[in-house]
Write a protein that binds this DNA or RNA. Structure first.
Lengths: 346, 346
DNA sequence: CTGAAAGCGCTAACAC
DNA sequence: GTGTTAGCGCTTTCAG
């Protein structure tokens, strides 16, 4: 108990106990290898009694694949990204891969990416962080895929998977315009992000198409605090908008809070509010937020499929995929949307 | 460009370009190794031009440390756990470690733990999942620490770091009793979890100490839906409680929604609601939830310190640490707690 | 179907 | 300070 503690069980130990060679042990763990059922059983039994599991690091040295996928994430305070990470991680596990997660703090990302590269991850997934071109080139030179979910990146080496942000936002404008709104304000996300630009673009286009002009456009940086500040600016102006469309849910939650608490407004009667992401909280009755569903499950399925192909050494060329977005209407834009309670009242 | 693509840069390549031996390259990356500043500079320069980074897998084979920490997490829908994961991951990175994250789906955990063990992680952190004793023993036999954050586990091999759940809940009861509440109901978490049991225990003890008897105890399984169901049961009874204390924030949010929307109750005037976790959402004005802060930062600092010690081969014996919990009072229990708005009104 | 031998990329003794 | 040598635990030809 004492002497052996800390020592690792090696394939050789298993081989000896099972009375076979190390090759046999290896084959027992390799699907589709030439090995008799009997030997495999003997090996597995020996492994079980010894508490052996193959050393993935040593294996990766020779197979040149680690089974590890680097995931760069940030902002788990945003429930949308939290859910995205959990779903992505689960999907990767199901595909036999393991996510090595890096929480990017915007500036130090490159350094951490180097760390991930030293673990020879089979693929890199960025959920809302960015990647320097230098790193992208270096990584892609290894024929390993880089995938950006929910963000279109400038580099050619990167596969982007987004929802159709433009038309998603257009459907919001249509919805509000159909309800009779004439003065619609927009709370944009982060100026640097493609998703925010696309959503804003969709907003502007459809406003023009409906013959409306925006009742103000303010940046909220995709954060709760930023959304609150934007709301104060918009609602503190001369004329009240009849709707505020937000580029994500987090900002919409803040906008609703400010509109109610600080301006005493009723939602949706006096002002309608919409978000984008359809995060879990949007469905809580305290928020009941009309939002645009990004179809996360499909984005993730595509990402995992893309990674799987690369791991099987059938790499696909980088490309941009868009999944459809879908408007989900709730009580923040429509009276009684939830079944007769009227106006989200508390 | 074409022929070399996909091939990995090895230390030998760097050594040749720099005109030194592979050992020199190795030493250039080992802090505190005997190497002249000049050769280190030459090596680093060569590495830079070749795009080299040391292969952590190969290194781990000989150093017997991977720098990877396995993190078992679940339920990122709960903002408390999402924030916990992000903070933990960030703290590990800062300590030079990388988190390999596993999302446990309760039943298949053991299988996935085996996968993590095959990566020879230096430590295992469980945030709210459980671990079978068999796995715990097997892992601990490698002299690697297992740490449970926010959950006390039965196994001796495991270091548990929790907040003082009992006294945290007691302070809630004191707070409500001081406000004059006499009929306080309790929404418990998951029966299997120590945190829920401890919080319930604290509730019962302090109720008794204040000469009060519980106005109903219902299990909400720590989930939003479970909390909603519990609220319906409690509020649908004969006599209305004057307060509902919940074992976590998620359930409290649901309780507030049900109380307002389905029973038309005003909070805190007709019924006060409290949570536990002090998650970020508790501070939003739409919730303004009185809650108990778990002191996550301190729990994480302790966890990372414990892991760091083990990685430096100075293992500490498993033990149980409790950090103090702190009551945070907001408008869900006290009128005008937020500065004169009265009763959380929408 | 099985075993022997070679080597993946790296670090750690040990000489110099 | 530096290079040489010998493995770390595993998979994979290649014979048998």
């Amino acid at each position: 108990m004492k002497g052996k503690s800390g020592s690792q069980v090696r394939s050789l130990d298993v081989a000896r106990l099972a009375g076979v060679s190390r090759s046999a042990v290896s084959r027992a763990y390799t699907p589709g290898a030439y090995i008799s059922d009997e030997t495999r059983a003997r090996v597995l039994h020996a492994a079980e009694t010894l508490g052996y599991s193959p050393n993935a690091m040593a294996r990766s040295l020779i197979t040149r694949r680690t089974g590890i996928v680097g995931v760069v994430s940030t902002d788990l305070d945003n429930p949308f990204y939290a859910a995205l990470l959990q779903k992505l991680g689960t999907a990767l596990q199901k595909a036999g891969l393991a996510p090595l997660v890096l929480f990017g703090d915007e500036n130090s990302t490159d350094h951490h990416i180097t760390q991930m590269m030293s673990y020879r991850v089979d693929a890199l997934v960025m959920t809302n962080a960015t990647l320097s071109s230098r790193m992208a080139v270096r990584f892609a030179a290894q024929d390993k895929p880089i995938i950006a979910i929910n963000r279109l990146m400038a580099q050619d080496e990167i596969t982007s998977i987004t929802c159709d942000n433009r038309s998603g936002m257009q459907s919001v404008v249509d919805h509000l315009a159909d309800l009779g709104c004439r003065r619609i304000a927009f709370v944009a996300g982060h100026p640097d992000s493609s998703s925010s630009r696309d959503r804003e673009d969709g907003f502007l286009r459809q406003m023009a198409a409906r013959g409306l002009s925006p009742a103000g456009i303010v940046t909220g940086h995709y954060t709760h605090d930023g959304g609150a500040a934007a709301a104060r600016q918009i609602l503190g102006g001369d004329t009240l908008p009849d709707a505020i469309a937000c580029a994500n849910d987090m900002m919409a939650f803040a906008v609703m809070d400010v509109a109610r608490k600080e301006f005493g407004l009723r939602i949706p009667r006096q002002v309608k509010v919409t978000g984008f992401d359809n995060s879990g909280l949007a469905d809580w009755s305290s928020h009941a937020l009309t939002s645009v569903d990004q179809n996360v499950d499909e984005m993730i399925a595509l990402a995992v499929e893309h990674i799987g192909a690369a791991v099987r050494l059938e790499p696909r060329a980088p490309h941009h995929i868009e999944v459809p977005a879908r408007l989900v209407i709730r009580a923040s834009s429509v009276d009684q949307a939830q079944g007769g309670e009227g106006d989200v009242p508390c």
